[in-house]
Design a protein around this nucleic acid. Structure first.
Lengths: 298, 298
DNA sequence: CACACTTACGATATTCGTAAGGATT
DNA sequence: AATCCTTACGAATATCGTAAGTGTG
């Protein structure tokens, strides 16, 4: 029979008071109730903690020896649960999100900003990595949340769509491709092209479509940074293809763009989480915020 | 609202089981009762510790983070109370007793021996000191129990009589004083005398009586050890006076003794404790044992 | 369809507060 | 006489177990 927390608190408060009457007030308890609680505690441990002598009450030697142990026990107890409560109230915690570079730079910043305002003591870290790596990090638990395209082998990963993106052709101003309202994928064949990293999900989608329509890109250069693509295109080194959301980040004077059609390729962007693994309270809050923002502002 | 011990134990056992059903068996609890306990704990800390998904149950990140804290908390808890219970079961503890040298050598050894058998893990230490020192040590808490004559200024000390002792004249065999059945105090005057330490309670009583009957002792020697007195008397250096209990310890061939009368002096021996301070369980056990032994064997 | 968890509800156990009884200063 | 602790007892509360319900694999 192990004592209860109430009983221990009753003991500590009583030991620190001059009388059970005084202690009962501090504990918001009637005197007899406290008396009974102490008695039960004593019978539980098999001996007297207090010596009652009619009017007076004193700690026994065992009670004196136990008091410091009891206060430490009680402090540890309340502290541990206060920590846990704080964790749940999202005042504290740590969230790691893995996102495609495009999204890390485009969609995430405003979300992260308001999240930081709401939960200032939550440690939030963003890793901008390629699609494969996003899935891998979430799968291995190195990231709580992934923001990316649907993972390929999504057995233990869950994907929740947030928004749809399409591709645009990016050209220097005055380029012939800009005369129409849209550009067909086949029209890109043979035109000098600035490609983004071969491993990126966008590039892989582009290559897949070009193979479908039976054309080949005249790739003059391959770069990693979206911004670099923009400046090269503006400089007239060639044209490029970017997801619309990515283009929005680098839109600048000297750059024109047209939606790509035939076929219209939709790029599904969304949240990746572990399927059989619940999110932490803080991660869940970020998840909700992401969904909310994606709904209101495409 | 701080959780209860039961709830914490329910959490730990559940976290270490594959299902609530399994955990409920270990806890000797019905499944719904366990479910409710966990739910209450969760509502107490403001968030989910487990993620239920119909058939399966998993720890949330917060639950995982809290588990090690919880097991430590639970271990500390049970360990602390186990210690306390052990203390009360008198399997462990420390008792310090201060006793007159006479009693430490005569009355105490058999008591201590059986006490040691009954409570092998109790640390028992005996200090053989003079009467004043016995009282002082108990008063200051340096000894739990004193065994001595009644303390002089017994305001904060309690004295419980154990047995009555009388004085005997100790003489070498064939000494003239041994012819009668008793010896009068006045007959000691002028006879060569071996005295014990002037500060001892026995000696002070002897001096007081001699002053009463109007005689003076012919003190040839003063020694501290009772055994020394015996050997000196046996060697014919003089006679002496000892409490009967003390004499019993050194009774040997070559020594005779007779009760001292006119007046018959009763020496009250008993247990000294602090008046407003309860005894520890172990000390209380020794106290009871002392009383018991004194009653059965004077 | 079987298993695991949840909800519902009646029964039991524990705890609480008021009132009365003792003991000590 | 006053104060503090205890005991007694009825009431409120909490917990438990059985039974029925719900969702998942």
């Amino acid at each position: 029979m192990t004592p209860t927390v109430k009983q221990l608190r009753a003991f500590v408060v009583s030991a620190q008071s001059d009388s059970f009457a005084e202690a009962s007030e501090r504990l918001h308890l009637s005197q007899p109730a406290l008396s009974l609680a102490i008695r039960k505690l004593e019978s539980g441990v098999g001996g007297a903690l207090f010596a009652r002598s009619g009017r007076h009450m004193t700690l026994t030697p065992e009670g004196q020896a136990f008091l410091p142990v009891a206060v430490r026990l009680l402090n540890d107890w309340t502290e541990a649960f206060a920590d846990l409560t704080e964790l749940f109230s999202k005042q504290r915690g740590k969230v790691t999100v893995a996102a495609l570079p495009t999204l890390a730079a485009g969609l995430l910043p405003p979300v992260i900003s308001t999240f930081g305002e709401r939960h200032p003591r939550v440690n939030l870290s963003v890793h901008d990595v390629l699609a494969d790596e996003v899935g891998q990090r979430v799968r291995e638990g190195r990231a709580d949340i992934g923001v990316s395209v649907p993972p390929l082998d999504s057995d233990d990963l869950a994907f929740e769509p947030l928004l749809l993106d399409r591709y645009v052709a990016v050209c220097p101003e005055g380029h012939p491709l800009l005369v129409g309202e849209t550009v067909a994928w086949a029209a890109l064949a043979g035109v000098p092209f600035i490609g983004i990293n071969r491993l990126s999900s966008a590039r892989q989608a582009i290559d897949r479509v070009m193979a479908e329509v039976g054309g080949t890109l005249d790739i003059r250069c391959e770069v990693n940074q979206i911004a670099t693509v923009g400046r090269m295109v503006a400089a007239g080194m060639g044209i490029s293809v970017l997801p619309a959301l990515s283009f929005r980040q680098i839109a600048a004077a000297g750059l024109g763009h047209r939606p790509l059609v035939e076929p219209v390729i939709e790029r599904r962007l969304g949240i990746i989480t572990r399927r059989r693994q619940p999110l932490s309270a803080a991660a869940s809050a970020l998840h909700a915020l992401l969904r909310e923002r994606a709904a209101e502002a495409p």
